[in-house]
Design a protein around this nucleic acid. Structure first.
Lengths: 192, 192
DNA sequence: CTTCTACTTGACATTGCGTTGATTTCATGA
DNA sequence: TCATGAAATCAACGCAATGTCAAGTAGAAG
């Protein structure tokens, strides 16, 4: 988890431990079954200390997601170039597998939080438009429908990939994704 | 909600009311924020009565999902034919919008429950194989990855469609889905 | 009218939540 | 090295939701 605020090293450490504990427990028993008590016991930290840092469970989870998004945004800003954006996303996922798994398992669960899901969906629309303009075409109708389709597909493919233990490289899986998205299923069967 | 057990008309009625109340409240405030008290007050039923019918909130939700799946399975069994399976799914969603919305918002939230998500994902694999064999091709590599991709796309598109108030007909939206899935994005821009 | 099922009422122990005030640990820089 | 302030602990509190139970009531079917 990326740094959330300006804190001493000690304070930062406990926040990190709480974040890690939450992700582990989400994977083990599901978001809503995780109590603050579970969380702080796992992290080896007093329950009251939790409330010094976070308002509640949602708060911790939301902030963890935001920290992750910021990391990803930064990555895409600095490593911009000919590489497709999707590849960077899969790379980042492979490096933060536990966290992304926890996020995927909870889906749009935490209400009103700026979720990673949301971020991906929002990122796809302009990205889609710019890609399409390279083909000299204006965006098709049903744009939001298509953006939903694609972001859902990405989320689900990524989730499968992580939970299966990443049997393909980030390059291979993003290549598969791009292919399915642009040319569809038929492109796969034709080439065999 | 379809009938769950053999009950008198009266008993069935309260189960239906509890199911409806849960779906409404999920949409309003999110699954985990719904208390049994909320639920029974909304349904106009005493809190203890809830426990006569269901073990807990997860139990009610799971049984509602199973009932829905059974309905859908039955629909596909009886209305089999030249119609694509996806169209039947979208039709059923349009007729049970509130319930499907509630399900989509909770995603894989309720652990260990036979979820609709799971059902869709599982249904897609054999369906995919049979469709592909009509083209005379054997299933491609990465089959589970592709099944994840497609079921995630379907889920996300359907969710968007329901929450946007179903601006397209079931026919149109399933046509869009099939097109994106088989031929990809490029097929859309080429034809304009 | 009786009988069975479904529902209500009121009460209870238990658990987790979120907060408070007093105290202790710990790093650090004067 | 020791004083200072930030971070963590400890004990205790009221509150709300959970799940359960025993006793009593309403309603439908024979």
């Amino acid at each position: 988890m990326a740094r959330l605020e300006n804190l001493t090293e000690r304070g930062y450490e406990t926040q990190k431990q709480l974040g890690n504990a939450l992700m582990e427990l989400i994977i083990e028993k599901g978001y809503e079954k995780v109590s603050i008590k579970d969380l702080t016991e796992r992290a080896g930290i007093d329950r009251t200390t939790f409330y010094l840092h976070f308002k509640d469970k949602d708060d911790l989870f939301t902030k963890s997601q935001i920290a992750t998004i910021n990391e990803l945004v930064e990555l895409r800003r600095t490593e911009a170039g000919p590489k497709p954006g999707v590849l960077l996303v899969f790379r980042h996922m492979s490096q933060n597998a536990k966290l992304y798994q926890a996020i995927f398992r909870t889906s749009g669960l935490v209400p009103g939080s700026a979720s990673l899901e949301q971020y991906i969906a929002n990122s796809i629309m302009p990205l889609l438009e710019s890609e399409l303009s390279r083909f000299g075409v204006s965006p098709p109708l049903h744009m939001p429908a298509i953006a939903s389709y694609i972001s859902g597909a990405l989320r689900s493919l990524a989730r499968w990939w992580l939970e299966a233990g990443m049997p393909q490289s980030p390059e291979e899986i993003s290549e598969l994704f791009i292919r399915l998205t642009t040319k569809g299923l038929l492109s796969l069967v034709e080439t065999r």
